[in-house]
Design a protein around this nucleic acid. Structure first.
Length: 512
RNA sequence: GGCCCCAUGGUCAAGAGGUUAAGACACUGCCCUUUCAAGGCGGCGACACGGGUUCGAGUCCCGUUGGGGCUACCA
C-alpha cells in the first residue's frame, strides 16, 4: 500500500533503540547482542536508533557512552546517528515531522482522533473509576466530536492530543518467534494517546513509525514489550503496513530474580570492564543466557557463537545474571590468551595501582610478563592481578596473620636462617639454581618440603599461598628475597597488612 | 482489579509423550601437588502444586501458587 513499507531487498534488518538517559543497561546489552548475532549471521543490517523524546532524562552525551560500551563488547552497527544511513535521522527528536505525518494519516483514515480532554479531566475520570472499584479506561468521549464542537474547542485555544481508536471486540494475534502464538483481546485496551499536544509522539507510536520507515524486519526485544505489541500491531494494520516479525527475549535479572542493582554498578557493562572481564568472555557468557549451542559446550569463541546461534533455540524464560559463572567463563578466556597478550591487558591495571610505570622499560616489561605468566591460571579477572602480584613489585611487604603465625611457629626461624644462608651463597639466581638449592636445603635439614618451603614462601611473599616457590623467588629477585628472609628470622614484629585481597587464603578474598 | 508473559537442582540449562531427567557454575570428597590455583575422577541436589487427556506426561490441556510486565500526555 505504501511504498515506504516495501522491503528494499531481502535483507534482514534489526534494530536496537536505547534511550540516551545513561549507560546501557546489561539487559539491553544482552538484547543488543542477540540482535547483532541475528543480523550478522544473515548478512543483515543492524540499526542503532536513539529514543530521546523524554527530554527531561535524555542527554546526547550518553550516546557516546553507549557507542563505546557496544564497541567494547565487539558489536558494530550499520546505521545510526553516526555514521548515518539511508533511513535517518536516527534520533527521535529529529524525526518529529515524520510522526506528525503518520499521525495525520491515521486521523484522516479515521483510525485515530483528536482528544481535547485536559490532564485534569482525565485525572478526574480515573479517580472516579478507582473509587468505584472499576478498572480505568479512557471514556472515549472525544472519539466522535462534532465538527462544530471541535472548532469551538480549537477556537478556545485547546491543543488536542491524538488518540488511537482501539477497535472493539477484536483479538490481536502475535506470532512471537520465541513464544509462539499470543492473543490479546482489544477490550482490555483503552484508546491510548499516541501524540502529545506538543507534537511529540509517545513511545508506542514512535516505535511503529520508526520501525516501519526504517524497514525493520525483525523486532527482537525484551519481554517487557510483549504487552505493547498488540497496540503496535493495530497501528501497523490501521496504516496498512506490513508487520515485522516479533521475538521477545526473557529478561536478565540480578541475584534472587530481582532487578539488577544499579547501586554498585552491576547492572552496567562498565563495572565488568573495570574489574577486568574480557570482552570475549562477556560475549560468551551473555550469549549463554537464554541460548545454548546444544551439547555440553560452554566456552565458545565469537566465531563459534556466530556460526551456531539460532534464534529458534532461544528460551522464553527469564534468567539470572550470575557473576560467579561469568568469572569462571572469564578464567577460561584468560587462559586462552597468549602470555604476551595477557600481560598487555594486565599492564594498565598494574600501572593504575602504581605497581609498574605506565610505560615500562624492557626489563620491567620482562618482569611483568614473567609474573603474569605465573598468574595466568590463577586469576579470574584482570584486576585480580594487582593483589596477586603486589609483592613482586613493592619493596615493602605486609604480612597476613596466617603468614606471621607460620613464621612464628617454634623452630621455623632456624629453618629460615639456614635457608637464607644457603640462598645467599648462590652464584646465580635462576629458577633452576634455586630449585637445586631448595633440594639441597631439604636434605640438609632433613625436613619435608612443606616444612621448609612454606615458611620461605610466607617470608618472601607475606602470605601462605603464591605461585610455585622458585619462580616466585626468581621474580622477587635476589635482593628483596634475602632482605625479606633476614627480616623474618630477625624476630622483630612483622607488619601485618589489612587483608588486601589475598587470593591465597580462603575466606580472605576481597569483596568486589 | 483487568490483560499478558514465565516456571526442570541455589544459578545457567538439555529435554520437542516412553530417558536410570544430560551438562555447566556454585558447594563438597578424593587424586595430582612445596602452598594457592588449574586439571582429573566422584558426591549432594530438580521437573512448583492440583486436576485432566493418554496404555504412558517434565513434555499436551485446565486451574492454583509464585515471579515478572503492561494497564501513563515514561521508554
Amino acid at each position: 500500500m505504501n511504498p515506504v513499507s516495501a522491503q528494499a531487498d531481502g535483507r534482514v534488518r534489526v534494530r536496537m533503540a536505547p534511550s540516551p538517559t545513561g549507560p546501557i543497561h546489561l539487559g539491553n546489552v544482552h538484547t543488543s547482542l542477540f540482535n547483532w548475532l541475528f543480523a550478522r549471521q544473515r548478512q543483515g543490517v543492524f540499526v542503532l536508533r536513539f529514543e530521546d523524546t523524554d527530554a527531561a532524562r535524555s542527554d546526547p552525551k550518553w550516546e557516546r557512552v553507549i557507542y563505546d560500551e557496544l564497541r567494547w563488547l565487539g558489536l558494530d552497527w550499520d546505521e545510526a546517528p553516526e555514521p548515518g544511513g539511508p533511513y535517518g535521522p536516527y534520533r527521535q527528536t529529529e524525526r518529529l515531522h515524520l510522526y506528525r505525518d503518520w499521525a495525520r494519516r491515521l486521523v484522516d483514515a479515521g483510525a485515530a482522533y483528536e482528544c481535547f480532554c485536559s490532564v485534569e479531566e482525565l485525572e478526574a475520570e480515573r479517580a472516579e473509576a478507582q473509587s468505584g472499584g472499576r478498572s480505568y479506561q479512557y471514556s472515549r468521549k472525544c472519539r466522535n466530536l462534532s465538527p462544530e464542537r471541535r472548532a469551538d474547542l480549537l477556537a478556545g485555544g485547546r491543543q488536542p492530543s491524538v488518540r488511537f481508536a482501539i477497535p472493539d471486540g477484536q483479538t490481536v494475534v502475535v506470532d512471537d518467534i520465541i513464544r509462539g502464538r499470543v492473543e490479546f483481546p482489544t477490550s482490555a485496551m483503552g484508546d491510548p494517546i499516541i501524540m502529545r499536544p506538543s507534537g511529540v509522539p509517545l513511545y508506542n507510536f514512535a516505535v511503529v513509525v520508526d520501525d516501519l520507515t526504517m524497514k525493520v524486519t525483525h523486532v527482537l526485544r525484551g519481554e517487557g514489550h510483549i504487552s505493547n505489541t498488540p497496540l503496535q500491531v493495530l497501528i501497523y494494520q490501521a496504516l496498512g503496513e506490513r508487520l515485522p516479525l516479533f521475538g521477545h527475549l526473557g529478561h536478565i535479572t540480578g541475584g534472587g530474580g530481582s532487578k539488577m542493582s544499579k547501586r554498585r554498578g552491576e547492572g552496567y557493562i562498565g563495572f565488568y570492564r573495570e574489574m577486568g572481564i574480557l570482552p570475549d568472555a562477556m560475549f560468551n557468557y551473555l550469549a549463554l543466557l537464554g541460548w545454548t549451542p546444544g551439547g555440553d559446550r560452554e566456552i565458545l569463541t565469537r566465531r563459534e557463537i556466530l556460526a551456531e546461534f539460532d534464534i529458534g533455540r532461544v528460551t522464553p524464560a527469564p534468567s539470572q545474571f550470575d557473576l560467579e559463572k561469568l568469572l569462571w567463563v572469564n578464567g577460561h578466556h584468560i587462559r586462552r590468551l597468549s602470555v604476551d597478550e595477557l600481560a598487555r591487558r594486565c599492564a594498565p591495571f598494574l600501572a593504575s595501582a602504581g605497581l609498574v610505570p605506565a610505560e615500562p622499560t624492557p626489563a620491567e616489561l620482562e618482569k611483568i610478563v614473567g609474573v603474569v605468566a605465573l598468574e595466568q591460571i590463577r586469576i579470574e579477572y584482570l584486576q585480580a592481578i594487582v593483589d596477586a602480584t603486589r609483592f613482586f613489585f613493592q619493596e615493602t611487604l605486609s604480612y597476613t596473620p596466617q603468614a606471621v603465625k607460620m613464621i612464628e611457629e617454634p623452630g621455623v626461624r632456624a629453618v629460615l636462617a639456614t635457608a637464607a644462608e644457603r640462598l645467599r651463597g648462590l652464584d646465580t639466581w635462576t629458577v633452576e639454581s634455586l630449585e637445586r638449592a631448595g633440594a639441597a636445603l631439604l636434605e640438609q635439614l632433613g625436613q619435608p618440603p612443606r616444612a621448609v618451603y612454606q615458611p620461605i614462601r610466607a617470608s618472601v611473599t607475606g602470605r601462605t599461598a603464591s605461585p610455585p616457590l622458585f619462580d616466585t623467588l626468581y621474580w622477587i629477585g635476589r635482593d628483596w628475597s634475602l632482605e625479606r628472609l633476614s627480616a623474618a628470622c630477625a624476630g622483630r614484629p612483622l607488619p601485618v597488612g589489612a587483608p588486601s585481597g589475598e587470593k591465597a587464603d580462603k575466606g580472605q578474598e576481597q569483596q568486589e
